[in-house]
Design a protein around this nucleic acid. Structure first.
Length: 662
RNA sequence: GCUGCAGUAGCUCAGUGGUAGAGCACUUCAUUGGUAAUGAAGAGGUCGGGGGUUCAAUCCCCCCCUGCAGCACCA
């Protein structure tokens, strides 16, 4: 019999007979090792412990508390969840149940919808299955046997999955006690290793193979961890995310509201609008050096959108309008029946501006920026507070340049992006290159060319960032007209938000026949780069609000200071204080109400006003203020002018601070 | 758009086949108080909209709208 050599994590070698299982090896080393081992890795790849080892390999035994075991715990939990559901509702078909971030889901085909109370029932049944601690055993079946078996059980989806397994690949079945499932594995040794740190979190609809035209399935989501403390920490973080929900904060802070008549469009209140405008002012300052700000029309004839390709590609998601006269008299030819589209993007407008008047190569790169309000008819189920709306403002720009300028323009945009994100407090940024999608316009040669340039740029950006930028590739995620960079930020509680985008477009200039006069007097087509830094300003506002849990930095707080009196004798002084704060450019209001200071402190704290200046008789007499910062229990008494100077300095936006300092 | 759940006062929520209730917020009065709710009184709702069943619907049924959680989508 041949032998093989296994290398242990500490480098020690062990020679065993070929075909020895991982479990045998572990047992030979020590019974306690065998007992606590749930799986192994061979050359880094996770395997069943019962797997016969065929060749030399580096072996590592995995305990359930090892990081490698986490995906097994989650995957095993998904199987147990499926068994529990089939026990409780016989006739339910199983489909797939993969591991996802923090847990797993399992999709079922079941006639009756799950009800909220079902989650607890399933959890209970799962606990019973886990308590039985049945072994996971792998079997390899023939394709025909698997298909016959699942067909006989009425598992049509599993039959389809068996069919989809490439010829020559094993059809693997994992059994846990009486129950079995088609699965590529691996699994832990038995269900008991799943432990107790799991919880079913919700259920929802889903589609077979993720296709909206496919069968409607029902999905159960669960989270699972090795330790109960980790589960508790995860649930706590979910709670934290709920607390900073921008929809809740927006209402509490009187920033904005939505109402039935305007699904997906924002009613901005005075305070929210103040901060929104501060965002725009900031972006304007950042653009001043290199960009020209323009404003394209809100409505343009349908034909223009046909030319741009948007109508063909996205008319399902566009608003089209006619005059009300035409709308009320659809059969009356005398009423102008012309159809306009509410702009879903600014780019066609910018191309028109570019085309107006002959452009020379000397004009390039021409960078046109716009805080354009666009409308998109988003699916009703997609709407979500400020994060997904039907009318929103983009910090949009289009750079018209020569092909030679493309690389430097992308790098320049990247510098601006990174600087802006830093100013808003986002340190970690991931930039991914999204490549050609299946449905697209333009030749393969054009795509090859554009992607080549961006690949090079991506490497350079990462190299020049000093580690701040991590990169990746999103295959097939580009837009229909060109490849793009996607900028993703990580927020204070670890969530990721895709915000910025740089998109290369050889298509639109061609469709609109845009050209410039080159140095040799020939007509040349410019390359167009679409870019947005915040993306949707509404959404970015929501992200900022959630990132800081409503505690906006002083420069973005709509109401920076409240001057609150303790007694009415201090009213005149308080008014003086506010007057001086305003004169110093601070956004301040006074609270003279006949309320106790406790009441005022509580109310303004809940409204998340960053600074409260409390004044009573003592302060009025001494020309002082008692400063209380949001989130602090203490107050500091200081001279009025000192307070104002300090606040004025603190309220300087980060970009202006750089200018003053340098 | 799809699946499920929900819609009662500005907010958070209770409630019933016989046309509604709490707390906070609001208004008024008293109170001038030292850093997260002073007390009292008052006002406030065609119970999301439209149909139907019923002697009677906020409650039961149907349709629609809107929202929530996912899915799908995101130029």
């Amino acid at each position: 019999m041949s032998t093989i050599s296994l290398t242990m994590p500490d480098g020690a070698k062990r020679v065993v007979a070929a075909g020895t299982t991982g479990l045998d090896v572990a047992k030979a080393i020590s019974p306690s090792l065998a007992k606590r081992t749930v799986a192994m890795t061979l050359d880094g790849a996770l395997c069943d412990l019962s797997e016969p080892i065929a060749a030399d390999a580096a072996i590592k035994f995995i305990a359930r508390t090892d990081p490698e075991a986490l995906e097994l715990i989650r995957h095993d939990a998904a199987h147990v969840c499926a068994e529990a559901v089939q026990q409780l509702w016989p006739g339910t078909q199983v489909t797939i149940g993969p591991v996802i971030e923090n847990g797993f889901f399992y999709d079922f085909a079941k006639a009756e919808p799950f009800q909220p109370e079902d989650l607890a029932k399933i959890e209970k049944r799962m606990a019973e299955i886990i308590a039985k601690n049945a072994s996971f055993t792998k079997q390899v079946w023939s394709r025909d046997k698997a298909k016959d078996y699942f067909r006989a059980k009425g598992e049509a989806f599993k039959v389809e999955l068996v069919d989809a397994i490439p010829a020559g690949e094993d059809v693997k079945i994992y059994a846990q006690g009486e129950w079995l499932d088609l699965c590529r594995g691996p699994h832990m040794t038995s269900t008991g290793s799943i432990g107790k740190a799991y919880k079913l979190t919700r259920f929802s609809g889903s589609y077979w193979r993720g296709d909206a035209k496919g069968a409607q399935l029902q999905r159960i989501y669960g989270v699972a961890f090795a330790k109960e403390e980790e589960l508790a920490a995860h649930l706590k973080q979910q709670e934290e995310a709920e607390k900073r929900d921008h929809r809740k904060l927006g209402r509490e802070m009187d920033f904005f509201h939505f109402q039935e008549e305007g699904p997906g469009v924002v009613f901005w209140h005075a305070l929210g609008w103040t901060t929104f405008q501060l965002l725009i002012s900031y972006m304007r300052r950042r653009l001043a050096e290199d960009y020209q700000e323009v404003q394209g029309p809100q409505l343009l004839d349908k034909s223009l959108w046909e030319t741009s390709g948007h109508w063909g590609w996205y008319s399902d998601n566009m608003f089209a309008v006619k005059s009300a006269t035409a709308f009320n008299n659809p059969d009356d030819d005398a009423a102008e029946q012309r159809v306009f589209a509410l702009k879903p993007m600014n780019c066609p407008g910018h191309v028109q501006i570019f085309k107006h008047g002959l452009k020379s190569y000397r004009d390039l790169p021409l960078r046109l920026a716009e805080f354009g309000c666009v409308h998109r008819y988003e699916a009703s189920g997609a709407l979500h507070g400020l994060m997904r709306v039907r009318g929103f403002t983009q910090d949009d720009a289009h750079v018209f340049c020569t092909e030679e300028q493309l690389e430097s323009e992308c790098l320049k945009i990247n510098d601006l992006m990174m600087s802006v994100y830093e100013d808003f407090g986002f340190k970690e940024v991931v930039v991914k290159l999204a490549t050609r999608p299946e449905k697209r316009v333009g030749t393969d040669a054009m795509w090859d060319h554009a992607e080549d340039i961006l690949r090079k740029v991506l490497v350079k950006m990462a190299a020049e960032s000093g580690g701040r930028i991590k990169t990746g590739i999103n295959e097939g995620e580009g837009t229909f007209y060109g490849p793009k960079f996607e900028y993703t930020l990580r927020d204070a509680i670890g969530r990721e938000w895709q915000c910025g985008t740089t998109q290369v477009d050889f298509n639109l200039p061609e469709r609109f026949g845009a050209f410039y006069i080159a140095a040799d007097s020939s007509k040349k087509q410019p390359v167009m780069v679409h870019r947005a830094i915040c993306g949707s300003l509404e959404r970015f506002f929501g992200i900022l609000l959630e990132n800081c849990a409503g505690h906006l930095p002083l420069w973005l707080a709509p109401r920076q200071v409240v001057v609150a009196t303790i007694v009415s004798d201090a009213d005149a002084y308080a008014l003086q204080v506010v007057k001086q704060l305003k004169a110093a450019g601070l956004r301040a209001v006074v609270d003279l109400r006949n309320e106790k200071i406790n009441y005022k402190v509580r109310e303004h704290s809940e409204a998340k006003v960053p600074i409260m200046l409390v004044v009573g008789r003592r302060e009025a007499e001494d020309g002082k203020v008692a400063m209380r910062r949001l989130g602090s229990q203490d107050n500091v008494v200081m001279g009025l002018s000192e307070a104002i100077a300090g606040l004025r300095d603190e309220a300087v936006p980060p970009d202006l601070r750089r200018v003053y300092v340098s």
